[in-house]
Design a protein around this nucleic acid. Structure first.
Lengths: 239, 239
DNA sequence: CGTAAATTTGAGAGCCGTCAAAACATGTGG
DNA sequence: CCACATGTTTTGACGGCTCTCAAATTTACG
């Protein structure tokens, strides 16, 4: 018999509770959720799940930054997604009931909340609205993949890198005087895997951005003047 | 009170009934489905829905071939997906309750089945399993987008074109003697939009494929020897 | 301070984008 | 059936970018 007292939702205190896929659910589902609920801290470079692993649940990033990567047979890899707090990961293999196609590895010290597969399944079955919200996550995943396919097909690597750095700056940077400043959370190889070029090319792209005065770069230290001639960021005419 | 007689499922006679997202549903949902159900024939080059149109339902391709394209402000476009019989399209904007991000245009004379938005909504609400199957379509969409991102990042344009032609040959070709033969359903520009290169480059890629003896090309007529030295299709070592 | 790993630099070949022009295909009206 | 106009595809020339391999340099860390 269900308890008449109010059971607190395991995500209730999370900053992302409002947009959680697990919310709202019926009271009964809360106990299932609570039972399947775990939190996990990851140090930088720690792996949350491995490519080809069986899905063990649905993961929700609550702090830090994870990279979703697929490794190719020839030793190279492609960085498919950066997962920020609020992002749900592992739902692809959860929904398909299949193995992970990507590896999830922390780029920064991170924290994830986990709903174990079996219990996630049960909650979803009893609460179609959870499925609706997961489908919405799928859709935004599709959207961002489309954006990436389009930018790869229509935009120069130089502009794509500059866009990426702008996004990273927005997420990780802070204002210092009239400059933005950040510590890059990614290595040059990771950036190369994200843009889809070789590391040597990435290095040269950085050089060009530096030479053009768009960014001040020193290792992982990036600075960016807040007011800069917009034509530089927009790239050469046409591209 | 539901009719005791058997109502036939509107997709019952479809070749893709077995894998339909609309199947199985409760008997009551069948009448809603039937009510919202339309079929539409498209001549080559006819538009099913326009980019930025409001979603009017969920479409299931039953014959022919459609191209999902997004047009960019600068006049170029990217071909994001070829939709074959059995494919469901429009589910992205249906699930997100948003406008279409792509245009759907028939490349060949085609036929689609349509479940009107309002009724699709109703069926989904009453039958969570429909949502599960739509989520599965989302997941395979994500998978194929990932494959595309990966191949764009790691494979030469030459190999990507050759892979594409192989897939098209499998779908549209027929064996004539010891050759495969097909009529290309796509213009050179469409192929260029699909691979992500300029039309001039596409023309040169074809020339190289021809020169290397992989394909015999004449306009939209493509022939391919069935037994060919596999190293040609695999491309240069490394790539 | 020294070793291993990551990043940058150099050189050369090949591929792609751009612009412009030629070749080809298609459809129309005479 | 031809002449013509239109739209698509191919070709040429050229500059710029990326890949590859190799070596130099910097950074990270024990």
């Amino acid at each position: 018999m269900p308890e008449p007292w109010i059971i607190e939702h395991p995500c209730a205190k999370c900053a992302f509770f409002k947009g959680s896929v697990w919310q709202p659910v019926e009271r009964i589902a809360m106990s299932v959720l609570t039972r399947g609920f775990t939190r996990k801290s990851l140090i930088a470079d720690e792996v949350l799940f491995e490519q080809d692993d069986q899905n063990e649940g649905v993961f929700c990033v609550s702090a830090g930054l994870l990279a979703l990567r697929t490794h190719h047979p020839n030793g190279t890899s492609t960085l498919l997604k950066l997962a920020y707090p609020g992002d749900v990961i592992g739902f692809r293999s959860f929904l398909a009931n299949a193995r992970h196609k990507t590896e999830a590895r922390a780029l920064l010290p991170s924290r994830v909340c986990i709903v174990a597969h079996r219990d996630a399944d049960r909650v979803v079955r009893g609460n179609p609205s959870v499925l609706t919200r997961m489908a919405a996550r799928c859709v935004s995943e599709i959207d961002s993949n489309h954006d990436r396919i389009i930018s790869a097909a229509t935009t120069s690597n130089r502009k794509r890198l500059s866009d990426l750095l702008l996004r990273l700056m927005a997420a990780h940077g802070e204002q210092v005087g009239d400059q933005m400043h950040m510590q890059l959370p990614l290595s040059r190889s990771d950036l190369a895997d994200l843009i889809g070029v070789q590391p040597e090319t990435m290095s040269r792209l950085f050089k060009r951005l530096k030479d053009d005065g768009v960014f001040v770069v020193s290792g992982r230290d990036i600075q960016m003047p807040l007011m800069q001639p917009s034509h530089i960021l927009l790239g050469r005419p046409g591209k």
